[in-house]
Computed example of a mutant assay.
Amino acid sequence: MPDQKSIEVCLTPALLNLYDTSNSIVVVIDILRATSSIVYGIDNGAEAIIPVAHVEDCINYADKGFLLAAERNGEVVEGYDFGNSPFSYTSERVKGRTIVLTTTNGTKAMHMAREEAYQVVIGSFLNLNALCKWLKVQEKNVLLLCAGWKDKFNLEDTLFAGAVVNELRKDFTHFDDSCVVAEDIYLLAKDDLRTYLHKSSHSHRLAQLNIEEDVKFCLQRNICETIPVLIGDTLIALKA
């Protein structure tokens, strides 16, 4: 295994063009709530999730037996089955089904990442331990891509990136300054993530939508073992 593996944090998709990801596993992070819901849905038996960039793209999948999920600005788009609340991705609703999903930030980041990355996987606090155990033994560099909020930095995705950096520190040789910042923030917040995130702008946006339970759910650690991986246009469970 190479002894020069690097781990980097891209704090917003607007900076992705600055990174060479051709030999990197890119972990897409959208904690509130897209990647948390994706992990939870596939862990609950969803056959696949197809991330699409635009609401209009979902229409191409109408009347074909798919569940259609669309979120913009934190709310379900009118006329769709659901948005990106993890409570919509229970086994009762998604087991054996394929979901077509578009969100404000997360699905955009996935589309950007796949253009050059060696591999794209999905991270959340829900699968933190499983993800880190897998990344440790891969012979690839890692880029942690924070989906942010409309191309701007956000706190919750950076917190998660910091948690991954903290877990993988002994297994990688090179770190960038974004890793240092992300890890420092995580170490400040790790004992009470929810209280720390009361500072975040997105937390306030979601509070106005009365979905505090979603936020609490997405900050749970290690309740899922699944690592979703993007194969072509489709997210499926990574096979061991």
Rank of each mutant, 00 (worst) to 15 (best):
L197V: 00
L197K: 01
H198A: 11
H198E: 15
H198K: 15
H198I: 05
H198G: 12
H198R: 15
K199P: 02
S200R: 10
S200K: 09
S201Q: 14
S201M: 13
H202C: 14
H202M: 14
H202N: 15
H202E: 15
S203N: 14
R205C: 00
R205G: 00
R205F: 07
L206T: 04
L206F: 10
A207F: 09
A207K: 14
Q208I: 06
L209I: 06
N210E: 11
N210W: 04
N210M: 07
N210L: 07
I211F: 01
E212S: 15
E212D: 14
E212A: 13
E212P: 02
E212F: 08
E213S: 13
E213Q: 12
E213R: 10
D214P: 01
D214K: 04
D214M: 03
V215I: 15
V215T: 10
V215F: 14
K216N: 13
K216S: 14
K216H: 13
F217S: 00
F217T: 01
F217A: 02
F217W: 03
L219P: 01
Q220H: 07
Q220F: 00
Q220K: 13
N222W: 01
N222K: 04
I223F: 05
I223G: 08
I223H: 06
C224Y: 09
C224W: 09
E225I: 03
T226L: 05
T226N: 07
I227A: 04
I227W: 04
P228E: 11
P228F: 11
P228M: 12
V229T: 06
V229N: 05
I231F: 05
I231Q: 15
G232T: 12
G232V: 11
D233A: 12
D233E: 15
D233F: 05
T234N: 09
